[in-house]
Design a protein around this nucleic acid. Sequence first.
RNA 1: GCCCAUGUAGCUCAGUCGGCAGAGCACUUCCUUGGUAAGGAAGAGGUCGUCGGUUCGAUUCCGACCGUGGGCUCCA
Length: 632
Amino acid sequence: MIKIILNGNTQTCEPGKKVGEILADNNALAARVNGQIVDLAYELKQDSEVNPIYFDSQEGRSIFWHSTSHLMAHAVRLLFPDVKLAIGPAIDEGFYYDFDLTHSLTEKDLEKIEAKMRELVKKNLPIVHKFIAKPELEKSYHQAGEKYKLEILSEVPDEKISTYEQDGFFDLCLGPHLSNTGIIKAFKLLSVAGAYWKGDEHNPMLQRIYGVSFPSQEQLDEYITKLEDAKRRDHRKLGPQLGLFLFSEDLGPGLMLWTPKGALMRRIIEDYWIDTHFKAGYEITYTPHIARGHLWETSGHFSYYKENMFTMTIEKEEYALKPMNCPGHILIYKSAVRSYRELPIRYAELGTVYRNERSGVMHGALRVRGFTQDDAHIFCTPDQIEDEIYSTLQLAIKIMSDFGFKDFHIDLSLRDPNHKEQYVGTDEQWDMGEQALIKALDRSGLKYTRREGEATFYAPKIDIKLLDSLGREWQCPTIQFDFNLPSRFNLYYMGADGRHHTPFMIHRAILGALERFLGILIEHYAGAFPVWLNPVQATVLTITEAETDYAEQVIAQLKTQNIRVNKDFRNEKISYKIGEAERDKIPYILIIGKREKEQNKVALRKRRQGDLGAANLETVIEQIKQDIFERR
RNA sequence: GCCCAUGUAGCUCAGUCGGCAGAGCACUUCCUUGGUAAGGAAGAGGUCGUCGGUUCGAUUCCGACCGUGGGCUCCA
């Protein structure tokens, strides 16, 4: 007999008993036995601690989705016998499988594949874990012409290969997997896309099908509702609809036109940004959009970034549009001999940069070729770096929360300790830099994830990802050291010892790029911006022409209070005008009819709250100002 | 850049198996002066993404290109 601890309770059983029988729980997808994740068919051989794994954990979902991916591959194999299978993992939200198939898959095919998958689910096929001798497996893959599987196999050192099989369809896989196809109650194939074998563009292009699955139809419906909600928030749709920005084929891809309302919002953001940065001890600069090639040679951009730069020839000399603002700031730093007494120097700039992004990667306002970074570069002494990182973090968090983002995921990217030769800079610099980042994070009390080997070649960094109202992540603030440019440009400062010292340089952006940040704000607020950000804060609607004079007085009063106000005096029914104002997501709608005019009031209607009845204008102005003050 | 899909009025979308291009909303004018999310009528609006080919005739079929979308890749 062996001892089993299940959910903290101890019991005994015969050796060889399956985990699934011990759990006796229909909702358990797999189990963790002594810390190792195993199938329900796993046989217990020794004293073990057993914990069930459900769909509510990341591990559980991953197993569920991986099994669905196999199910899909099984269906595709049945429908298209000549298919060659590549890989089919679970991903953050769902799964995919890559196929090499002569037939081009379409949406219609997805329906067919789903139907075939449903058949396989109904059959309740057992999913069986088997170990097959490598030569045997190689032989059968060779016969089937499964070249991708053979390639994977050649990279596996094991002699006995772990595979999973369901009704004759098998796939190499470490597992674990669900015990039966019948568990996969609800799934949807979402899209078909091209993907290179192993993600390398020199390799053949495969066809990838993305999908998602759940233990119940309700969960799938909920997921689909969420997708639809995300679609309703799509900044590419709302942006032009709300008059914020647009793209024009005549202008060129990845180049954004800020239309008046969007430009006004940008102005509000910029004013806030500049004011906040002045208060935080930054100095504002402007640097030109083009610079001679020589500068980009010194900075190194021409050797490692030139293919992403727009270049031109002026008087026989090569110039380039700036892809980054740092060289300009460095030239300002270098324009005088700097003393340790004047450090830290913090140069901030809303700098518009241009990058020649590959044609397939542009995406609405989020990925463009011309964009304005809220960039800054801090030059400081070694003993200032921790404080500088700390205050930059505080500033980033303050700004993000002012824009309504309160939840973050923070990544700390460090160098790969086993491949130190890949990085520029000295060990001393790296140790100081990494320690400063860690200390500043700890001092801030922020939770973060360490990512070894994720640093850029020139320095470690902190990336902050915002979570929006749908729980989606957006990478915005980034704080990175630079151990490369100060030495390339021979930067120094005069130390207390009368000698030259190389300053530490910190790059940082908080909003990222204004274009992208506007897109994120639209998605986060679904276009219904807080009052302080909304380009139109209030609108005045009249019921009949008789109230026009009084309504104009109301508007004049709002304007003296610096409230951004619109009007709609058109000869239309009030409900028509309200509908339009609501669709424009204007936060305050002031309605004026005969009664309001007589009583010297306004009828207030607030976004999402509806009709609030008559109120004194002064009260309404106070409310608006309070909303602005509290950034609601 | 690559694979696949896609492009008809300002917007959302019909349609033409090759023969003068359609609706709703928006816009203009007129009627309606109305009380909390779309009152009525009339009018105007399109080189059917661009260029080329096939054809008596192309928005429709074919090709190239451009844009957009889903991905891959890249993201200093």
